[in-house]
Design a protein around this nucleic acid. Structure first.
Lengths: 249, 249
DNA sequence: ACATATTGTGCGTTATTAGTAAATGGAGAA
DNA sequence: TTCTCCATTTACTAATAACGCACAATATGT
């Protein structure tokens, strides 16, 4: 598995620039990369040609609009369907609503909606990623694979409730509540292997239990700081999950 | 202005993969790039490390979730403020609502909202770009610079109305209506140069006329196929423009 | 004016990458 | 089976990029 230094550096520049709201000077990029300025110039020029970065009027390098086009092609149908649902969920629960998708062993917030009157600011931006082993979103995604004897107590509890609830796992004092994007639950006891497994998607003999969206492991939920009515939040999350499921057929 | 072959190819791969909803095989990437498969492997491996592409369960290369994080850092405050406004505008006008930002001589749709009951499908996805010289969005952005004697009749008309209306310029049978994201209008007659110009932002002696958002040339508007009530659409676009302006202070 | 960063470029020498060929193994078709 | 197509890795030479340096051209500050 060999990798390419030049490409890797270019992508690191893109990442660095994107993390700098006010842009970066060439010299700063060169310093952070630990390379000569001349190299930073060539990297930036190439990124610029592809519209991934742009130069401000003062010459500083800013994240370019090309990233919007790229992101617009990531799960467009799911996200388009989810957007209005998340807005509604945020309003109904008074908390920040999110759609998370699993990639590898990480969980990525793909779409986020905030209520009109945010109670307490929770900074949960699109693109936020965290290990799948932590937080309500991770649990909700873990719920999508069939039960195993190695499942944690929290996971089993989540399966029984139909949703996952965690406190302070991702951020001090934050409460997360998430439900998996699948119909029904895996309520089998013990290790029951799936009847067949294709392309990593578990196919069940009885499709009414544990039917997932093909190729995507996702969940929706809410995050808030302490003051969250978990009763109504759970109801709303499940209701909106079902709304989203029926929207994407 | 020299550029780097390796980086450029890697970014081209990213673009190719993003345009393929079902992913691409290594061989297809290699063929489309016109390079050997071994090179495509190295490019893909590097992109994969940066989470910009991912491998499906069948081995095909798919766009990765990393692009969501990158895009989330492009104009986050403007987009967060615009999202609910666009949803409301789409609902009020019954058409697809958009937020466009100018970059160079192009105009990029950065945020899009569709009405719950779309009348006729208008495909206007986030990331869509077109020359700034065409379409309602381009005109609306052109309205933000001070009037010049070289202005087209359409631009002058748009200035007088306070919004731009075009038919069929971007797509056959499509109607676009857009208003610039600035307070008031440039209603000066003839060529009146700005009192000062810094960093490409025009600063006026009287800030109540033509005050823009610093550093961003943007507009909001709607697109529809034929059946659009332009009267109410214009009213709603202007109303929502003002709502967005006050939201971002 | 003067000193001083900072930006942007050009040029040689070394390190990395491209390009090519070739080998292995798996999936599917004739 | 045999054949083809594809994925994946390895190995070796031209081509490309990195790197360090030198040098204008601009800002920027005193």
């Amino acid at each position: 598995m060999s990798t390419l230094q030049t490409l890797s550096r270019g992508l690191t520049v893109l990442e660095l620039v994107s993390r700098s709201p006010d842009g970066l000077a060439i010299a700063e990029i060169a310093r952070q990369l630990g390379v000569h300025r001349a190299i930073a110039y060539r990297l930036v020029t190439t990124l610029e040609e592809h519209m991934l970065v742009a130069r401000g009027d003062d010459g500083r390098i800013l994240i370019g609009s090309g990233v919007v086009a790229l992101a617009g092609r990531y799960q467009p149908q799911l996200r388009m369907a989810a957007q209005p649902v998340l807005v509604s969920l945020a309003e109904a629960s008074g908390a920040t609503a999110f759609l998370c998708v699993a990639q590898g062993d990480e969980c990525v917030a793909v779409e986020v909606a905030e209520p009109e009157q945010p109670m307490l600011k929770v900074s949960y931006r699109a693109g936020t990623r965290h290990p799948i082993s932590r937080g309500a979103a991770g649990l909700a995604i873990a719920m999508q694979r069939p039960p195993q004897s190695s499942d944690s107590a929290a996971l089993t509890a989540a399966r029984n409730q139909g949703y996952a609830l965690t406190r302070g796992q991702l951020q001090e004092g934050a409460i997360g509540l998430a439900a998996p994007l699948m119909h029904g639950n895996h309520q089998l006891a013990g290790d029951t292997p799936p009847s067949s497994q294709m392309h990593g998607i578990y196919m069940y003999a009885n499709p009414t239990h544990g039917a997932q969206i093909p190729g995507v492991r996702a969940c929706i939920g809410v995050v808030a700081m302490q003051a969250l009515d978990t009763e109504t939040a759970a109801t709303e999350v499940l209701r909106h999950r079902d709304r989203l499921l029926s929207a994407i057929g």
